[in-house]
Design a protein around this nucleic acid. Structure first.
Length: 470
RNA sequence: GGUCCCAUCGUCUAGAGGCCUAGGACGUAGCCCUCUCAAGGCUAAAACACGGGUUCGAAUCCCGUUGGGACCGCCA
């Protein structure tokens, strides 16, 4: 019982790491870190036709981005075929498995027939104890499932789940091409890697009794199981590409912060009282299966976006400065290789981070600080750059030309003086200037915007605005 | 069709028989703050799927119904 916890995340590289997988990885990682146990990464690539190197790399990249560091692996099942073969041989020798010569076509036909007649599509075991194997056929190996009694799964999340063994059928553990199948490799690997807790999606709950029998046949204790509820799309079906961005990396590209995604994913199916925001340290400290829910959760992008905004706002500007560069390049705001002054960038980001929910938004807002020529939004231009506002722009321009120390407090003094002289409100002057500076009607505080742009750019933009009206 | 899982505001959830006039968060609406937009603060609308039990008492326990989901491959 005081055995050291060993858990694994075992994706199959037939696609990018999707959000469901990311959450499974997260809970495994959290449990390992919470118990000071070992987190193992294992790539389940036995399906050679669908697994690709590209996906393996993509999954690893996602895991790194999310900062789920693993202690062992990545192991690859394709490197371990000899192990599975020897275990299969052992089962054969002990009469716990047998060769089956039924062809895939026959199997498929029987399955559809059974389904059409409303019967469960269960293999009938006809090849078990075959005296004279047919010639010219390469067999598969099937594992003999017990047909009597029941199998009980004591799940850490679902509680006690009972299965009738009569519903189990002899499953294929080795294909005719000599490669092993999933339900066999998981068990062999989990045994071989001393896995103590199997934490996975509850789409695997139905596989569990089959696997339990394989553990027993192999002569090993079964690990503890924890089946996580699924993550669903807005239409309440299993999350997939149809629901828009379903891969973890897609969120990276959309300018999400890994900590925000992790925080969001953790709160999907897990809770700790009323707390919504968790640092990684808190997540590790508080994580427990008792607080994992049992019902599926719908993935809600709005809450994720809110959390991301929260994390962006909370991040240090220097940190965001580093992170936003790739997005500035991607959005074609700066050329690759161009460097921005770090202190200046931090100052600019300071004004923007509380109003940016993603790094993409941040990059796009940064645009008007960086580019040479502002573009006016037509509506903004019509409303604020006209004969009525011309006088303010001209006077602001005149005052700025004389201003030596071009900083926010000095700029503010100029505005104050102008307000008094014209007996007007700040908004009447600030808005036209804002449009002249940013092309938009919304921006950070105008004094900060002006300081960050700097005297030279400000004067140029004022002159352009004045010219536009005239 | 069979097996299994699940069921509290639109969404994520708190709730371990009396603390529940069901709490928090996102989103929505309103107000405050305010040079705009945000951020922040305050307020509001919004849920125990249904029916039976058990109990002095049920969102909480049991059964059923309904609804949703997953799985039933020589995929994982």
């Amino acid at each position: 019982m005081t055995e050291k916890v060993r858990v694994r995340f075992a994706p199959s590289p037939t696609g990018h790491l999707h959000l469901g997988g990311a959450r499974t990885a997260l809970f495994n990682w959290l449990y390992a870190r919470h118990t000071k146990g070992t987190f193992i990464l294992r790539i389940e690539d036995t399906d050679r036709t669908r697994s690709t190197e590209e996906y393996i790399e993509s999954i690893i990249e996602s895991l790194k981005w999310l900062k789920f560091d693993w202690d062992e692996g990545p192991y690859r099942q394709t490197d371990r075929f000899e192990i599975y073969r020897s275990y299969a041989k052992k089962l054969l020798k002990e009469d716990k498995a047998y060769y089956c010569y039924c062809s895939p076509e026959e199997l498929e036909r029987r399955r559809t027939e059974a389904l059409a007649q409303g019967r469960p599509p269960k293999y009938d075991g006809r090849c078990k104890g075959l005296k004279e194997p047919p010639t010219g056929r390469i067999p598969v190996i099937r594992f003999i499932m017990p047909q009597e009694g029941e199998t009980i799964v004591e799940d850490l999340i679902k509680g006690r789940v009972v299965f009738e063994n009569a519903n189990l059928d002899d499953l294929i553990i080795m294909r005719s091409d000599g490669t092993p199948t999933y339900n066999f490799t998981v068990v062999v690997d989990d045994v071989d890697m001393n896995i103590t807790h199997v934490i996975r999606g509850d789409d695997h709950l139905n596989n569990t009794p089959k696997q339990i029998h394989i553990y027993r046949a192999l002569g090993y204790d079964v690990p503890l199981f924890a089946h996580l509820p699924m993550i669903l799309g807005a239409d309440k079906t299993r999350l997939s590409k149809r629901h828009g961005a379903a891969s973890a990396l897609a969120y990276k590209e959309m300018g999400y912060l890994p900590d925000a995604l992790v925080n969001y994913l953790a709160r999907l199916g897990w809770s700790y009282g009323d707390q919504e925001v968790f640092s990684r340290a808190e997540l590790i400290q508080y994580f427990s299966f008792e607080n994992v829910g049992e019902s599926p959760a719908i993935f809600n992008t709005e809450k994720l976006l809110w959390l991301n905004g929260f994390y962006v706002n909370k991040s240090r500007p220097e940190e965001l400065g580093e992170l936003v560069i790739p997005f500035l390049i991607k959005e074609k705001i700066i050329r690759e290789g161009r460097t921005l002054d770090k202190d200046w960038l931090s100052k600019a980001i300071m004004t923007l981070k509380e109003r940016s929910k993603t790094l993409v938004e941040l990059a796009n807002s940064l645009k008007y600080y960086i580019v040479e020529e502002v573009e006016y939004e037509p509506k903004a231009k019509d409303k604020f750059l006209n004969e009525k506002t011309l006088i303010y722009l001209v006077e602001v321009n005149e005052e700025f030309e004389k201003l030596e120390d071009f900083v926010a407090p000095e700029i503010e003094k100029i505005f104050k003086a102008l307000i008094e002289r014209h007996d007007t409100k700040l908004a009447d002057i600030a808005q036209p200037v804002r449009v002249a500076m940013t092309g938009k009607t919304e921006s950070p505080g105008i004094f900060d915007v002006l300081e960050i742009l700097g005297k030279e750019k400000v004067l140029r933009r004022l002159e352009k605005a004045i010219k536009t009206i005239g």
